[in-house]
């Protein structure tokens, strides 16, 4: 799976260019609100939020330099959905390196995602986001299209 395949699961409505929350619980709420607002098939905000919170209890998903990948499976979604968000100020998201997190890629999948499509998507994203120059371009992208163009490497 490459980045272009991952981007098929998101849309301009699932892009939050400037998160306002300043701490981890607030960011999770804002991300879930974004998922519900941006996806016509997701309505159970509490279920998604509780799933993401329980996933963070397993270990922080802020594993990239300045990047977090909150993810998990929940009955509240019918298909793999990817939300992209950015915090210009950065947030303490319990990252592995202790640095602030600026970019968020939220991947949620239904329990019956038997091909583990979202783990393959996570692999593609974690690999791509290792690039320092790319992360800088993503922070500077003006809109969703510019963000995706930079991420896709076109």
């Amino acid at each position: 799976m490459d980045i272009a395949d991952v981007l098929k699961h998101t849309s301009p409505d699932l892009f939050l260019p400037d998160l306002q929350a300043t701490d981890k619980p607030g960011v999770l709420v804002e991300l879930v609100q974004g998922l519900v607002a941006g996806s016509p098939t997701i309505s159970k905000q509490d279920a998604v939020l509780q799933m993401l919170e329980s996933r963070e209890a397993l270990g922080s998903t802020a594993v990239g330099p300045g990047v977090a990948f909150p993810h998990g499976r929940t009955l509240a979604v019918q298909k793999l959905t990817v939300l992209i968000a950015r915090s210009k100020a950065g947030v303490d998201f319990d990252s592995v390196d202790g640095e602030k997190t600026h970019l968020f890629f939220v991947l949620i999948a239904p329990p019956q995602d038997s091909g583990h499509k979202y783990i393959k998507s996570l692999a593609a994203l974690t690999d791509r986001l290792q690039d320092d120059a790319l992360r800088q371009r993503l922070m500077e992208a003006d809109d969703f299209d510019a963000f995706c163009t930079a991420l896709g490497g076109d």
């Binding site: 799933m51 594993v63 929940t74």
Partner: peptide, 21 residues
């Protein structure tokens, strides 16, 4: 949902750890 995440950590744990999780 929690049990699905537990199962995934147990069954795909090595793969997830390789990704840095």
């Amino acid at each position: 949902d929690i049990e699905a995440n537990i199962r995934e950590a147990e069954e795909q744990g090595e793969e997830l750890k390789e990704l840095g999780f």
